[in-house]
Amino acid sequence: MVKINLLPHREEKRKQRKAAFYRLLAIAGVVGLGMVIGVAGMYAAQIATQDQRNNFLKAENGKLDAQIKEIGNLRQEIEALKARQQAVEDLQSDRNQPVYLMDELVRQVPEGIYLRSLKQENQRVVISGYAQSNERVSELLRNVGNNSAWLERPDLIEIRSTTLGQGRDSKRVFDFTVNVGIKRSREKDAAAKPSGQSAASAAKKL
């Protein structure tokens, strides 16, 4: 017996295929939306983690900046204390400078020179006097510049010919003014160290 399907089967199959396509499309949309939400959540979690790290680094940097500022303040206080300590030491050492000055002048002033006045301003001393000749003044400058442990950097300010006395007792001399520096104890010790070290190294070589 032959069966004949009189229903519009082609139209029915077309509707079934269209319904299946829509179902697949809906499933794909749901899956895609889920993937997008998952990826977005993963990125959001990574961004939140990175924000936490950034906030932690900012907080630590703030602490370091505060510590650096504190260290800078401590350094300034230390430098100020060192400066005060050095000033006190300089004041104590400067009390003996007149003694060192007079002792050095006795050692370094050659014969034929008469000192008339001394005036000290800080670490410079103005020396005025009379000399028998220009050579005597030059010798004084050489002695102070090369042979003195306490005096340094001599500078001839003025020298002029003048006459002392009257009549037969008058003498032609040279009136001079010299400016010299006087060292502090620490400067003298610092200048003496290199020579002492070189002598010690030379002795080791021998």
Rank of each mutant, 00 (worst) to 15 (best):
F21Q: 14
V99R: 10
G181R: 01
I71S: 06
A19Y: 06
R184W: 07
L74V: 10
D103W: 04
K82W: 06
V2R: 12
Y114W: 11
K188P: 00
A200G: 05
N134A: 12
N179E: 12
E70C: 01
R142V: 09
L156E: 00
R184V: 03
V106D: 08
E11A: 15
K15H: 06
L101F: 01
Q46A: 14
M42K: 07
N122R: 12
K13P: 03
K58P: 00
G41I: 01
R184A: 03
D169W: 03
K13W: 11
G32Y: 06
W150N: 01
T177L: 05
I159A: 06
S133M: 02
Q132N: 12
I71H: 04
Q123E: 10
L33S: 15
D169K: 10
A48N: 13
L206W: 06
K63L: 12
L118A: 00
L115H: 00
N54K: 07
E70L: 02
A59G: 12
L118S: 01
N122V: 10
M35C: 13
N146K: 09
A199E: 07
N96Q: 12
R10T: 13
S128C: 08
L156V: 02
Y100G: 02
R136S: 04
Q166N: 06
N122Y: 11
G145M: 04
T49V: 09
L101N: 01
I182L: 07
A26Q: 13
N96G: 10
A26V: 08
K69Y: 01
V36P: 02
V31T: 08
E187T: 04
I159H: 04
K205S: 10
Q120R: 14
K18G: 04
E187K: 03
L33F: 14
L81C: 05
I78R: 15
N5D: 15
R124L: 11
V30W: 11
N5H: 07
D155M: 13
K58C: 02
L33V: 07
R124T: 12
S133Q: 06
G29D: 06
Q76F: 03
I47S: 11
S185Q: 12
L151D: 00
Q123L: 09
V36W: 13
Q197P: 03
V109M: 00
E70R: 02
V180L: 12
Q197L: 15
L151K: 00
I37E: 08
G145Y: 05
K193Y: 12
E70G: 02
I27R: 14
V30G: 13
V180K: 04
D189C: 01
I27K: 11
N146I: 04
V137M: 02
S198M: 15
R160T: 07
R53H: 11
Q85V: 11
I182P: 03
L57E: 00
D175G: 02
E139R: 06
N73C: 05
E152F: 14
Y22E: 13
K171C: 03
E139L: 07
K13S: 08
G62W: 05
E77N: 11
N73A: 15
Y100D: 04
D169M: 02
S185E: 14
S148M: 05
I47P: 01
A26K: 15
E11R: 14
A87T: 09
I127V: 08
N55C: 03
K193C: 02
G72F: 01
Q76H: 05
L24I: 10
M35I: 14
R84P: 00
A59H: 07
I37H: 10
